[in-house]
Nucleic acid binder design. Structure first.
Lengths: 113, 113
DNA sequence: GCTATATTTCGATTATTCTGGAAATACTGG
DNA sequence: CCAGTATTTCCAGAATAATCGAAATATAGC
């Protein structure tokens, strides 16, 4: 297993932090549900009942951590979950818990394929 | 799959938040490496070079989110990773990413048993 | 009980984050 | 180019979090 340097650990911490708030965790969940089409900002805000500017800040944070992606569609901005980043985060957590230390047994968490 | 209520989502958010800081993520990693024996507070502080009181706050937060456990050993306090909680968090993330939405393919993350 | 060690709690400072109204920007269709 | 809609940025306030020295607490051994 590759050794993790300080920057990488900090990055994972930032990703966890980005998911570490109820509104943002809800946003990610919602985008996963709507995957791969995603949703435009207005739909997210309406569904989760979050004011425009507040939502925009949350989306910005998630985007900065690369957990979601954005693409313009005319006057709309469509947001989608970034599956590779989530994959990476999941892989990190899995590696820490199961591979690196054998602290958690994989089979308890997942049933493969 | 059981439907997640607001309190549960908030709880997962809090767990992510607890891991969402570099010092605390390092602490969890260190305790996983030392699992199942764990480490006493002083050892953690020395290894990660964190002042007493700062460390104590971090440990308190992790303990509040049930990510670590503590037991007294004479004048020492031994901390251990709480594998069930980590298991649960890993399971949640897995379910969100892979089961619920099929956004991430399990085999990309893990190689089962 | 006193001393020594380990760790927490107190207290206070600084930094960061969350929130949301109002103004600005971006785009579309006429 | 103007009106209309979508969304962001600006700004500011309030709340929360991170930090750490110093004082307090807990335990052990003598």
């Amino acid at each position: 297993m590759a050794k993790l340097d300080s920057a990488q650990i900090a990055r994972y911490a930032d990703m966890f932090s980005a998911m570490g708030t109820e509104p943002r965790l809800r946003i990610v969940r919602l985008l996963l549900t709507a995957h791969p089409e995603g949703l435009v900002a207005g739909e997210i805000g309406e569904e989760l009942d979050i004011p425009n500017s507040t939502l925009s800040h949350h989306l910005d944070k998630l985007k900065n951590e690369d957990l979601i992606a954005m693409q313009r569609e005319g006057t709309f901005l469509r947001y989608t979950a970034n599956t590779s980043a989530l994959e990476e985060l999941l892989g990190f957590l899995y590696a820490e818990c199961c591979t690196r230390s054998n602290a958690v047994e994989p089979k308890k968490v997942l049933c493969c394929r």
